[in-house]
Nucleic acid binder design. Sequence first.
DNA 1: TCTATATTCTACTCAGAGGTAGAAATAAGA
DNA 2: TCTTATTTCTACCTCTGAGTAGAATATAGA
Lengths: 137, 137
Amino acid sequence: MRFQKTTEYAIRVMVFLADHMDERYSANQLHQTLQIPYKYLGRLMQKLSNAGLVEVTQGKQGGYRIIQDLSNIYLSEIVNVVEGLADYGRCVLGFPQCSDENPCSLHKIWKERQESITKMIYDTTLADLQSNGSKKY
Amino acid sequence: MRFQKTTEYAIRVMVFLADHMDERYSANQLHQTLQIPYKYLGRLMQKLSNAGLVEVTQGKQGGYRIIQDLSNIYLSEIVNVVEGLADYGRCVLGFPQCSDENPCSLHKIWKERQESITKMIYDTTLADLQSNGSKKY
DNA sequence: TCTATATTCTACTCAGAGGTAGAAATAAGA
DNA sequence: TCTTATTTCTACCTCTGAGTAGAATATAGA
């Protein structure tokens, strides 16, 4: 029960770029700084740019940066780009129908926890993550 | 961020058998009752029996049942058989070292949630799940 | 002993995650 | 225009999760 590794990479990259708002970073620079496999990172950056989360410059001085307002970029958007958000709205045991009125065995102990996790990813912005002062990317 | 599908199967089977303590069920019966792929279920039952979570009878009237005290079988043991428990003690972004003193970007918003999930699987027994009266397996 | 039914074991397939490699396209600067 | 560095695109690989198929082994009951 974890984010996909690629999602971890994506979050780390976005937080790093959020902390360096005025700078453009090439995939190679990001690779070296964050220890993310270069070619794989390139593909990930394409996904993030296709989704509008980063601005990309092609060519000789190319690279990626964030231009959006950090408080408008939510964790859920990053998670969605990589793995989708289906896991956050589904029954923990996979039943198509599961509710307070028709619960699966784990519903009672899982419901609040799921809501808490879901709230975390939908409510947290890059601005929030920036403000915690972490320098670990 | 979900249990593996096989873990879902395992939990469902164990809860079903917990609710039918006096009966032995063959893999075929479980397959038909719970809509879990037959051959795959057989392999899962082997794992559960190798781990001591179910008692197995071979041969003509063979099958599986739980003989342990339900309040001694924890959700974590079931999760451990299938996917291991590594996810529950690690940094959400995968850093080898992540703590209150040296946190990753998500540490602050993830720590309590992780503890809550971890507590859920380590503290919940089949007896607890039985008592919620669910009949959805 | 034989038959039938069950578990156990082994091997295979496909899809997706994570990753590598190479070619093509883009753009700055000389 | 050419060179260089970058992004973009395409194809390949390995491993694991999920699942199927078949054979071997174990056991009850006739």
